[in-house]
Design a protein around this nucleic acid. Structure first.
Lengths: 340, 340
DNA sequence: CTGTTAGCGCTTTCAA
DNA sequence: TTGAAAGCGCTAACAG
């Protein structure tokens, strides 16, 4: 009996023996077929098929020191915002040797810390993390990792490495300004469990309305529950109890906006005549709703795309084009806030 | 200069030297702290902190032969159905040494084949794949892999290994029967780009209605575009042109049902009085809509949960409780199909 | 173009 | 309870 068990599957050595060549030749052929003569190439190919050989990426990664993993840490797996970015990242690495490893931080900083440490253990080629609110300890770890680190969704003052996103403060300002332009004055705010970006948007709402003497805390309805359409209905219902004269509502996201619309419909409140509604993210359904719902479009797919681009650029040794990439946003005005 | 570069980061050997112990002792402590004396344990812990040591999972996997990866192949990353299952899988492996590696097959069998082969290269601890319609070649590879293979979402005749899901034929039958019970007779069907499960549901719709002489192909509106709420609106609009006397619609999924509702609202068609609507999956928004929308609840989270459970059970060497697990479904009747 | 040797970071085996 | 040696599957380095 051998000393170690092994995986039981064909290894590169098995293929080499079968094809009567050196292991390194098989290795070379796998990575760049042009570096091997035609004769040996066909012989090796036959052996690979005969033995059903599949290369082991972790052995390759260990030997070469070249990690083939790109780590992605996001706060939720069932939120379309993150799913769209993930899709872009997956699309971006397709055809490359890289694999995407996803971590779900569940909006929990401790879990984020744990996962950052765990992921760095993989010696990934790069790491993509959501937001700019990592703990000091994690920021230290990430800074020292010596790999491209991309913070996405929000651009902050001082990125760890690369930062791709938008200013949620500016976006929130644009939302409030739009409502004011449309002559809404009694503007409420609905939000479910918040992440740091949502909090900055809410804070901006407050600081925009206060100087105009339009801020009324009874119009702000918050909950710790996670966001959902039903949650949006409940928040809207409560707002209508608290402050029935509210004439427009800023929703922390599109799910809540849709719920608010349904609640208005069920109470016979006309949107936008009696109630203006604006969401955030511009999910696909917003344009299909009746009446169609105004929202702020954030290009989540592009964020993922640019993240992968920046990583590959950096990995090629090129100097980073930009450390901060502001992808901006677009307020898509629709019926739910269009008056007159 | 050394011959190989190394990762530049602290290794287990560095920690061992720093703590003045053998590398194996550090290794043991990491895996089971009780196997090391208190004195050495604290010394090693200090060294780990001092050097900022993070273990390398791929080296561990290579040496132990124990893969720490569970592969998951799904057809879409931005569909809540799959996102919910992914979340369950992530939740299930939390606190275990396993990592989840996700592959996006994009509803493409060739891409699925490629990914199955690629993923098996990782020598994963187990593999979870969506559906039961893999290619022959892939089924062969999976059968020979010698690891737990879980097919999810649908239960078929002859699972490769473990199969967790529901009968989409039975679910479709229940939908049609429900509409018939509610006295709908001119029943249409709306569907966007289909996967095999959707196709089986559509086929069942046909085979249920034909013998009753209620099948009318002009009421079936299909498109190759990917599913969306806007797509649901467009399909509904076309159905109303093709066959204005249609009195109910089976929607291939909830997005399309929501779009159909919005289209009815915009045309002043009353739901359910003039048009019954039923969706599939029972996304959260269905209960929040106004009127609330009937749908078939599929427990996507539970599918992921059971998949992980089965894998761990199998990995522990226990005989599988069941090879086929039917999680069933539940038709949730709401206002959109409730008449009288 | 091809092969030999050593070693990636960790764990198994065997021994003390 | 601890350690030394060997090896997991692959590739970098240095030959030839």
């Amino acid at each position: 009996m051998g000393k170690r068990k092994g995986s039981g599957r064909a290894t590169i050595t098995d293929v080499a023996e079968h094809a009567q060549v050196g292991a390194i030749t098989v290795s070379r052929m796998l990575r760049d077929p042009t570096k091997v003569s035609d004769k040996l190439r066909t012989r090796i190919e036959q052996s690979i098929n005969a033995l059903n050989y599949i290369p082991d990426p972790k052995a390759r990664a260990l030997a070469s020191g070249q990690a083939d993993i790109i780590g992605v840490l996001i706060p939720s797996l069932s939120n379309i915002v993150f799913a769209d970015t993930l899709r872009a990242i997956h699309d971006g690495v397709k055809g490359t040797p890289y694999q995407v490893l996803i971590g779900n931080t569940r909006y929990d900083t401790q879990e984020e810390d744990r996962l950052i440490s765990l992921f760095l253990g993989h010696r990934p080629a790069a790491l993509i993390v959501a937001g700019i609110d990592q703990s000091e300890k994690s920021i230290q770890l990430l800074s020292d990792a010596g790999i491209p680190i991309v913070q996405i969704y929000e651009i902050g003052e001082d990125p760890i490495d690369i930062s791709i996103g938008l200013s949620h403060i500016e976006a929130s300002q644009a939302m409030i300004e739009h409502l004011l332009e449309q002559d809404f004055r009694k503007i409420g705010y609905l939000a479910a469990r918040m992440d740091p970006r949502m909090e900055r948007r809410l804070e901006t709402y407050r600081s925009k309305l206060k100087p105009l003497d339009l801020y009324d805390p009874t119009r702000v309805i918050l909950t710790d529950k996670s966001s959902s359409v039903n949650c949006g209905r409940a928040l809207m219902r409560q707002l209508l109890e608290n402050a029935p004269d509210t004439d427009a509502v800023v929703c922390a996201n599109d799910d809540i906006a849709l719920g608010a619309l349904f609640e208005c419909q069920s109470q016979g409140i006309s949107v936008p005549d009696q109630m203006g509604l604006i969401g955030f993210n511009d999910f696909e359904m917003m344009s299909a709703a009746y009446p169609s719902l105004t929202s702020v479009r954030t290009n989540r797919y592009k964020i993922g795309e640019l993240a992968v681009d920046s990583i590959f650029q950096r990995l090629k040794g090129e100097a980073p084009t930009q450390k901060k990439i502001d992808i901006g946003f677009e307020l898509i005005q629709r019926d739910s806030t269009t008056r007159g």
